[in-house]
């Protein structure tokens, strides 16, 4: 016989499935998602949008070959250019044809239902990056992040009152192969990020498109991190078509395209000092974008932020896809 609470729990579990999804059809292929929802070990919430077939097509980046830029394969770029303005990049998925199509539907057709899906897909990479940032700071002998926790995030005035732990209710997964994150360690993400920001788009682009996909992704990350989402960057001019340029050209053009929002950065730094940090402790900023291609954008943005900051800043980059 089933107890009342058991019955209620069952009922709730089912209702969650009914009210959860924005639509009972798969967002990508339009098929009805019959039967039990598909489960993904990477991001368990994705069955809200996708059928099992489409879920399987996501090319998750599970193993990283380049610890700097998060590439899943051998990376000559970072060997050629070992010094970067940002600490590291982590991406959720490889930029496969399927992912290209999804991003296209979101960015260019403007189907904003994809916004939530893409943001949710960012979660595994976010968790990994948070763990690595925490581990790195421990190695650097900073004041234990765990200690700063309880005070840290809560002390930010105006921060979003996001409920739940920054890693979400799903806890942390093991990355056995990953030296930065030894198996079994379950770092709390709270207090790791002092601010979340995003790659801005030009005004024309914003008006044409109606939204900035990087800002939408960053919004989700800020919620997980329980950190303020701040516009720390400004688009000075449109980057133009990136694919047509050479590598060096691209880096140069990108540097000219972004500038810091100095007031925002100073305000952030001042709050950071007021919150009682020692001047030596770096300000950890999470920079979010949709794709990481050559790193030119991330490099330019990180440089801009650091140039305007009066204190030591570490910029970590979180991107949805790694091409």
């Amino acid at each position: 016989m089933m107890s009342w609470t058991g019955f209620l729990k069952m009922l709730l579990a089912h209702t969650a499935d009914w009210i959860g999804p924005p639509d009972e059809r798969c967002l990508v292929c339009g098929d009805r998602r019959n039967g039990l929802p598909a489960r993904s070990s990477e991001a368990p919430n994705l069955e809200r949008w996708l059928c099992a077939g489409c879920l399987r097509r996501i090319p998750w980046i599970r193993r990283i070959a380049c610890p700097r830029c998060g590439r899943p394969v051998f990376c000559p770029d970072c060997i050629r250019r070992p010094v970067r303005a940002f600490a590291m990049n982590r991406s959720a998925v490889r930029y496969s044809d399927d992912m290209k199509a999804w991003l296209k539907l979101y960015k260019f057709r403007g189907d904003e239902r994809y916004g939530d899906l893409l943001a949710e897909m960012l979660l595994p990479a976010y968790e990994r990056l948070t763990a690595e940032a925490a581990a790195a700071s421990r190695r650097a002998g900073e004041a234990a992040i765990a200690g700063a926790d309880r005070s840290g995030a809560a002390r930010w005035p105006g921060g979003p009152e996001a409920a739940g732990g920054p890693c979400g209710p799903w806890g942390f997964r093991r990355h056995g192969a990953d030296p930065a994150c030894p198996a079994g360690v379950r770092p709390s993400g709270r207090g790791v990020w002092h601010a979340v920001t995003y790659v801005p788009v030009s005004r024309e682009r914003a008006e044409e498109r109606g939204f900035n996909q990087a800002e939408r992704l960053a919004r989700a990350a800020a919620k997980w991190a329980n950190a303020p989402l701040l516009p720390l960057l400004r688009r000075l001019r449109d980057g133009g078509k990136q694919s047509q340029r050479g590598r060096i050209e691209r880096f140069r053009a990108m540097r000219a395209a972004f500038g810091p929002d100095e007031t925002e950065i100073r305000r952030l730094a001042a709050r950071f000092v007021r919150a009682g940090r020692s001047p030596g402790e770096p300000l950890r900023i999470l920079l979010v974008d949709d794709i990481y291609t050559t790193g030119a954008t991330s490099e330019a943005c990180a440089t801009a932020i650091r140039s305007a900051a009066p204190c030591n800043v570490l910029v970590y980059v979180l991107t949805w896809a790694r091409s």
Binding site: R109, G110, D111, E112, R113, A206, G210, F211
Partner: peptide, 25 residues
């Protein structure tokens, strides 16, 4: 479908039905 819109600075509705022919909002 209502989303915050950078073009007008408000929450603004767009039509999903004819999205494949450009966004009507």
């Amino acid at each position: 479908h209502r989303t915050p819109c950078l073009a007008c600075g408000r929450v603004c509705a767009y039509c999903e039905a004819c999205l494949m022919l450009g966004r009507s909002r």
